[in-house]
Design a protein around this nucleic acid. Sequence first.
DNA 1: TTGAAAGCGCTAACAC
DNA 2: GTGTTAGCGCTTTCAA
Lengths: 362, 362
Amino acid sequence: MPTPRRAALPPRLASAEPGQGVTLADVALAAKVSLATASRVFSHPQLVREATAQRVHEAARRLSFRPNLLGAKLRAQRTRIVGVMLPTLDNAVFAECWRGIEESAMAAGYSLMLVTSNYEPARERERVEYLLRHRVDGMVLTVADASNSTVLDQLDRESVPYVLAYNQVSRDAAGHGRHSVSVDNQTSACEGVNALIAAGHRRIAVISGAFTASDRARQRFAGYADAMRDHGLPIREPVNLPSHTASNAPQIQALMAQPDAPTAFFCTNDLLAIGVISDLKRLGLRVPRDVSVLGYDGIALGALVEPPLATVVQPNADIGTQAITQLLHRLDVGSAGADGNATLLPHALRIEGTVSAPAVPA
Amino acid sequence: MPTPRRAALPPRLASAEPGQGVTLADVALAAKVSLATASRVFSHPQLVREATAQRVHEAARRLSFRPNLLGAKLRAQRTRIVGVMLPTLDNAVFAECWRGIEESAMAAGYSLMLVTSNYEPARERERVEYLLRHRVDGMVLTVADASNSTVLDQLDRESVPYVLAYNQVSRDAAGHGRHSVSVDNQTSACEGVNALIAAGHRRIAVISGAFTASDRARQRFAGYADAMRDHGLPIREPVNLPSHTASNAPQIQALMAQPDAPTAFFCTNDLLAIGVISDLKRLGLRVPRDVSVLGYDGIALGALVEPPLATVVQPNADIGTQAITQLLHRLDVGSAGADGNATLLPHALRIEGTVSAPAVPA
DNA sequence: TTGAAAGCGCTAACAC
DNA sequence: GTGTTAGCGCTTTCAA
């Protein structure tokens, strides 16, 4: 029979589970110190004498004391919880990013609360409100469109610290104070398309996710346009595909049936690229022999398929790590007033596998 | 200048942000009701007169009141937070599962806290302790090995409600009271391999993740063994690959160089299968013409590649949905004593694409 | 270095 | 229906 704690505790379930119901007060009592001292042992060890701390630790161990973070958070008016909002985990880009975030946050003693927005602004608002109710100290998020986002406006208004991941805020936005961590979408996309051009392609089409759902897609298309313009090549209208997972053979087929069918595709993300490659294969076309395909993202999976996916690589885990690190730094140091800075992480080009010279040099 | 709230609030930062610092007491004051009534308006609306409720809502709106969940949770001794521990999000299986979990939990008014264990028992223990400190009401988790898991033992000991996802607890474990939601790994794997055999294959090899890191892998191998034994075919030692992402061409090559090289591979997960297919292609082998490959998981990506990945499909989002639903039901109804029940969800076979008859009928 | 005491924001008896 | 009151578990002045 477990030692009965406390004389009588009517509304509390008399649990036999260790840790359950054992409070800091119990520990203090057992260690014959005050509640305050017991608390200090855990939050400000340097303020308490070594011997005393030992006694408290010992008592805590004996009672299987497990701190109730709720009490601490409520009182401290700081939750040490960071809210994370990502569009979806179904795209490996964000799953990889999460890994970076989780690792760094845990190491820094912060907790996380993850929500996904599914690229929908309405859901973004709902989820952000949810995070706010949990009194997260700050947020790391990727929004559909950073340049026109009601959630970001709200966060700014309420001065909730946050760092954007993947969304690249324009440098000249003049003091909106938005922090972001991303690659340079436009420049990197431009370089990718340049590589396509260097390989001999002149008829290059863009397959993209919905522009409204992703400012990245827009920026990457702009990079494509830059490259084409720089080389005096015709800029084609992008093909906006709604979803990653559906087969879009019809659209691709229509494109390939035209007399000036593209010899290369630039897809604004890797998942799209993988789908396009399959669609091309189903049309009897070989990649890269008949058509080249360039993706964007650098998800691990791309290196796993054969031929490996040519792509513009962004450091996904790093983006997460950097974003959370910057946020935690701001939270800890409290440089809330610091002006927004857009961190640009280096990207890389992986031009191989699904990209080669066009069959018939244009 | 914003209307100053409260006479003086020394330690509190006089913030101009809406919602920040506005408490239920402020709302009660503004609505000229007691704190208790204000609280009831939100938690037990049926206990308060309509007109009063209106006044409170109005005041809340005017003051931009945002409930502080921390206070509620601390007092209520129920957090309405569920901890979720998954091995990794890098495998789409779990990312898809998360979607199901998030959707259902949000709809039911529960919050989530996600952690990943990376298949490491040590990290499982650490992360579970972390969740426990947050006083989650229960957990949905996938552990490396459910039949030998210190975290599960701990959870049982502390009678923390939980439901396993993917881990399939043996039915005859006699009252350990473990709840789980999964497909029948062994049976489904057996069926998959049977399909391979039906297609004409007799030399079938298994490529698997580390058995120690996944009880599912072991169960699926057992299913393979069943099928082979049933047909009087030789059971081969499994090839255990450490990671999903690395190329394992050497091992595959060695296998294929043998005189009795397999004509088909059964991979215990889809990611592995995709890697194996690439490795085979790099060896100059065509899939499925020269070698067939069967995966396991049914991740969306598998249908996206060409040829589509033949696989044993499990309902990933459903596994998440069911697991969380069962847990929430237990939390709400409180049938804590109910004996563990292993829910088996239906699987499906997708035999096409990467599986065909062997080139040289054995 | 330690203790006493006052809450953080909210809910839930218990009265009226 | 509504108000009064007593905390949930913890941190943190302020004194000693």
